[in-house]
Structure formats: structure tokens, C-alpha cells
């Protein structure tokens, strides 16, 4: 789910063309999720802001697939729900994990790693007269 939620519809679409037919049980529909933070980062929760999200539930050969993703891309939510259903099918799962999930996960991990390398390149060592701790 985490991988599908971060993928673009364009990346999911080619893998959904040959999936078994599905029927929509709910959505795709756009709505709001209220995000929460914690006081001081680790205290009691508080409501931060709403964010748009899109959800979709499909039935694929008796298996229910569900997706909720941040943003307003209805096609992406439906494709993710279809893949969620297909991934529950033991006959389809290994191929989908290898063809869809693993490459997308690698791509997303590389994007995160690139940001972390960029952040690391801005690591700063300030020199002061003070020594402390």
C-alpha cells in the first residue's frame, strides 16, 4: 500500500491492463483526511490540517481491493485498489511483486536516498569558542 500510494498513475496503468475484470464497490471518491501531530512531537495528539485524499474499493474475482491515497487522482486510487485486490491472489502475487512493487519501491527508496544525500551535502560544522554539554 505504501508503495502504491507513492506511485504515479502512469506507473501503475500498464500493469493493470491484463488484470482480471473488476467492479467498483465504492468510489473512486475524493475527500478529506484530518492530519494530526503531537504536542512537542511526542505528546498528546492535536489536529493539524485536513489533506485531500482519494479512496476506492473494488471487487476482483471475489477479492476486495482497497486504496486510500493522498491527493485527488481518482485513476490512481482505482488502479491501486485493483492492484491491492490482485496482490491477494496467490497466483498473481509473485509476478506483481516482482514487476510492479519491487521496481517502484526501489525507485521511491532512491528518491528518498537522493534527498538524504542532498541534505548530507548541506551538513554544517559551526566553529565557536564555546564548548559545552
Amino acid at each position: 500500500m505504501a508503495v502504491l500510494a507513492r506511485a504515479a498513475a502512469d506507473a501503475l496503468r500498464p500493469h493493470c491492463a491484463r488484470l482480471p475484470p473488476h467492479t467498483r464497490l465504492r468510489g473512486p471518491e475524493i475527500g478529506l483526511v484530518m492530519l494530526r501531530g503531537r504536542m512537542g512531537g511526542d505528546g498528546a495528539p492535536f489536529n493539524l490540517t485536513e489533506a485531500t485524499a482519494t479512496r476506492c474499493t473494488v471487487d476482483m474475482a471475489g477479492r476486495m481491493g482497497h486504496a486510500t491515497v493522498l491527493g485527488r487522482d481518482m485513476e490512481k486510487a482505482e488502479l491501486a485498489a485493483m492492484l491491492d485486490a490482485a496482490l491477494q491472489d496467490p497466483a498473481l502475487r509473485p509476478a506483481l511483486l516482482a514487476a510492479v512493487i519491487a521496481p517502484l519501491a526501489a525507485e521511491q527508496a532512491e528518491r528518498r536516498a537522493r534527498d538524504a544525500r542532498r541534505a548530507e551535502a548541506t551538513r554544517v560544522q559551526f566553529f565557536t569558542m564555546a564548548t559545552m554539554r
Binding site: G31, V33, R36, G37, R38, G41, D42, A116, T122
Partner: peptide, 21 residues
């Protein structure tokens, strides 16, 4: 827009850091 619900509190200690000072 309809309200789908509340998210779990975000964990800022586990943030993918772009800046931290």
C-alpha cells in the same frame, strides 16, 4: 468534500529530513 476520517499522528522524529538545525 466528505471527511474520510482522522489520520494517525505523524511521527516527526522519523521524518525524512531535508533540513534540521
Amino acid at each position: 468534500l466528505p471527511r474520510f476520517g482522522y489520520a494517525l499522528p505523524v511521527d516527526t522524529a522519523a521524518m525524512a529530513i531535508h533540513r534540521r538545525i
